[in-house]
């Protein structure tokens, strides 16, 4: 048990170091390179005095490292600065949108993960069969399709032709179950297809890898049917790689929501971030970027820790 505990602590420590490097990369790209944020905000016609005043107000005259430290300290204490575009606190802007994005991602994950698991396991069990080959072509195509193609096809079919769903996601204040369904159906479906295709492929590979192990042959030779050999013997050993696959895919979801939120005009963090790019609203952009990167790191951390816990060699301290 002690060994596991140490490994997990070490793993968390590594994640924190990684997060620090990431924050430095994000900050220095966004801040130290050309252009003067103050000049940018006020436009070319601004007086030098006004620019200087603004520089002072935003602490832009401090040395870079100090600014980085201040920014990082602010992030840790929940103060991500003030938006340049509309002068509201960044944390306020994000928190208003965060739950929406999490809901979108959550719905997608809840639907896509079990679906992909079943797909992947079935494909592995019948590897080489027609089902497997058909699934291979299908998933291979789906992982290569841009989200906006899927989204436009959905809109064309369900909103334009059939007129079943609105082409934009709008959740009214007094939303009922039906409203939620109407708002979420197309964004979630778009994300699900890309995501499950990829997860199914990785699950299949993980299970197949275990199926080629001698202990699975042994199980078959002990008289266990194929389904039992897969579910009772191979699957427990594939948990580590599968969780890893799920985490990696979900982290892909972080990028996928960017497109989907924009297309369906969905009020989430990702569309906020795209707006921040267009407005060159750096404080908001940096905070959003850190949010996504942290989300990614947490997912990978969960995957690694599950792999550690699922390993009997570590679990029994051997």
């Amino acid at each position: 048990m002690k060994v596991i505990f140490q490994l997990i602590i070490k793993r968390i420590g590594l994640s924190i170091i990684t997060l620090l490097i990431v924050s430095a990369v994000v900050f220095f790209i966004a801040n130290l390179l050309p252009g003067d944020a103050a000049q940018e905000m006020l436009g070319q016609s601004a007086t030098p005095e006004a620019v200087a005043e603004l520089r002072e107000a935003y602490g832009l005259n401090d040395p870079p490292l100090l600014r980085y430290a201040k920014w990082l300290g602010g992030l840790v204490s929940g103060d991500a600065g003030t938006s340049l575009a509309n002068a509201r606190p960044v944390s306020e802007l994000i928190s208003a949108r965060l739950s929406q994005s999490l809901m979108l991602a959550g719905f997608t994950a809840v639907l896509a993960v079990p679906f992909a698991m079943v797909l992947g396991i079935v494909a592995a069990m019948y590897s080489g069969s027609r089902i497997d080959k058909a699934m291979n072509i299908f998933t291979l195509s789906m992982v290569a399709v841009p989200e906006f193609l899927l989204a436009t096809i959905f809109v064309l079919v369900f909103a334009v032709e059939l007129n079943w769903l609105p082409s934009l996601s709008y959740i009214p204040a007094d939303a009922g179950v039906n409203d939620y369904f109407r708002a979420f159906a197309m964004p979630v479906a778009t994300l699900c297809i890309v995501l499950s295709a990829q997860m199914a492929r990785m699950t299949r590979a993980a299970v197949l890898e275990q199926l080629s192990q001698p202990y699975v042959e042994m199980a078959l030779l002990k008289g266990s049917p194929l389904s039992r050999a897969v579910l009772r013997h191979a699957l427990p050993n594939a948990v580590g790689p599968i969780v890893n696959a799920v985490a990696l895919s979900l982290s892909y979801l972080l990028g996928g929501v960017v497109i989907v939120e924009v297309i369906f005009n969905y009020p989430g963090v990702a569309s906020l971030m795209v707006d921040a790019v267009t407005n060159r609203d750096m404080p908001l952009l940096q905070a959003c970027a850190m949010l996504f990167c942290t989300g990614y790191l947490i997912l990978v951390l969960i995957a690694d820790i599950s792999a550690i816990v699922a390993n009997p060699k570590l679990r029994t301290g051997g």
Binding site: Q213, P214, Y215, E217, M218, A219, L220, L221, K222, G223, S224, P225, H233, P236, N237, A310, P312, K313
Partner: peptide, 24 residues
Amino acid sequence: LAGVRGRKVAYVAQSAAAAFNPSR
């Protein structure tokens, strides 16, 4: 075959280390 294997005919593999399921 599944009904016969393990009950009537049994198998001892070359590498026990690989033929035992590591997680059970």
